[in-house]
Design a protein around this nucleic acid. Sequence first.
RNA 1: GCCCUCGUAGCUCAGGGGACAGAGCAGGGGACUUCUAAUCCCAAGGUCGCAGGUUCGAAUCCUGCCGAGGGCGCCA
Length: 542
Amino acid sequence: MIRQTLTEALRAAFSALEGVSCPEAIDLGRPANPSHGDWSSNAALVAAAATGRNARALGGELAKALSKNPPRHVRKVEVAGPGFLNFFLHDAWLHEVLKQVVTEGVDGYARWDFGASRIVNLEFVSANPTGPVHVGGGRWAAYGDALANILARCGYSVHKEYYLNDLGRQMEAFAASLAARRRGEEPPEDGYLGEYVREWADEMPDEVAAANDAGAVGEWGYLRARRDIEASMERLGVRFDTWFSERSLLATGDIAGVLSELRAAGVLYEQDGAVWLRSTEYGDDKDRVLVRSDGESTYLLGDLAYHQNKFGRGFDLLIDVWGADHHGYVERLAAGVCALGHRREQLEIVLGQLVKVVRGGKEAKISKRAGNLVLLDDLVSLVGADAARMTFLAQSLDRRQVIDVELLAAQSMENPVFYVQYAHARICSLLREAATRGAERPPMGAAALETLTEARELTMLRTLHGLGEVVATAALERAPHKLTAWVRQLAGDFHGFYHDCPVLRSDVPPDVRGARLWLAEAARIGLVTALSLLGVSAPDAM
RNA sequence: GCCCUCGUAGCUCAGGGGACAGAGCAGGGGACUUCUAAUCCCAAGGUCGCAGGUUCGAAUCCUGCCGAGGGCGCCA
């Protein structure tokens, strides 16, 4: 709102000048240094560079024009440094922010509709159904779920999906390992050595084991693993709309279908008895095999059929969240999707650096096949779903995350999640206490918001003002961790306010009390909104 | 050899063209008869891996080097 006011005022100021035009996108920011005002723009610097004029002089002219006819809430406009335009505002702009937060509430504040036309399929985790989910999988789960929430808040229609690779060599190796363990033997080479295989083999009903049928054992094992994975996701609070089976693609003929579509498109050829996709024509660095010379289809063919199936279900944007170890696979899948007639932008692969799992300072393997698993369930039961999610969402996906389960458990009380949740509980307690004492909030229209002039109060309102932009950025950059940073900031602002600004104390004038109660309510709205987007609970009491 | 990501305070990380680089933890010093001290405040801590380049302006963009992790199958 204020941003728009200032932008328009800047445009108007430019239009009054000769020989200079306003930069396309006006960069308007909130300077870190308070002496640089409440808002600041580099428009003069950019425009000066484009026209060869002196930036400081141009800025001076703009500042003069803006000062003559100041936009709403603006107290003073200065040119500073090399040519920055600094806007100093009356506190009233923040009081309006407060009004807006409270009026729009948890459902409406910081909500956008720029994604309203997009129907998104967001696929994440998709760990093979050959064992429990390890700690590393939690990162994708927390990330994907939070991203889905954030996209939805920006208007996107989001569908969360888990792809089950219930076909192929991994499943066969898993079945063989289960069967071997049941017989009391070691798993075959390339088999699964994890301890859970032993446990599950013991669980297997006699009739399944006795049938001595690889298919039956595999099917039992698949369902066992799938149940386990679903339960782990549930414990972390992550629910998928669809659990999509790779096998179903065979049954529906999608795999054969995509092959004939590609053939019809003329992008296939045969060589050495195999069927190849001419993926180099779509940016891949070499062509890829879709059907091996032994007649088996490759993983890529299945994946193409799967992605084509997603498009067939009406999604116009597919977002896949993958571990960075699959980075080399991105271009070939994208090539295939383009060969099927889709635009490259319709497939977006988010790559996240892998989690390094450490136990008491020593690295733990996180491969199901090598054994020695550290399970997501273990982490969740040690620190709880909220702390686990907050930990996963505390940093950028671009950065490798080191999770030391023991250290996390030992320091769980220091987890930032409690700092934020405590702020929320304090607000709830404050509002409860206010009700008990009969200190009701006045109607918003009658609240003396102009009494909010303390630095603590204004700082918190500045932060609250930023939520909308943070949500939009988190959505567009697929970066939920920005919201984590924001909510910690808001919690810190509130704790500071709470410490310095009494609300219910008897020496607080009633109009100030009323305004502060509304401010607390606004903070509560901000905390609840951000936490719910992150998938973290906001307890009323701690 | 080629490709991707990262290198910021003792540790874990934000910031990713803008004006003096921020937070948490650890360590030092303070603040509870008051609305929840799971809190707050103060001090201390940095050649933003190194070297060039682009720019009015670089932690941020480009190139090279160094270091860390991951990937380069008719595996999945």
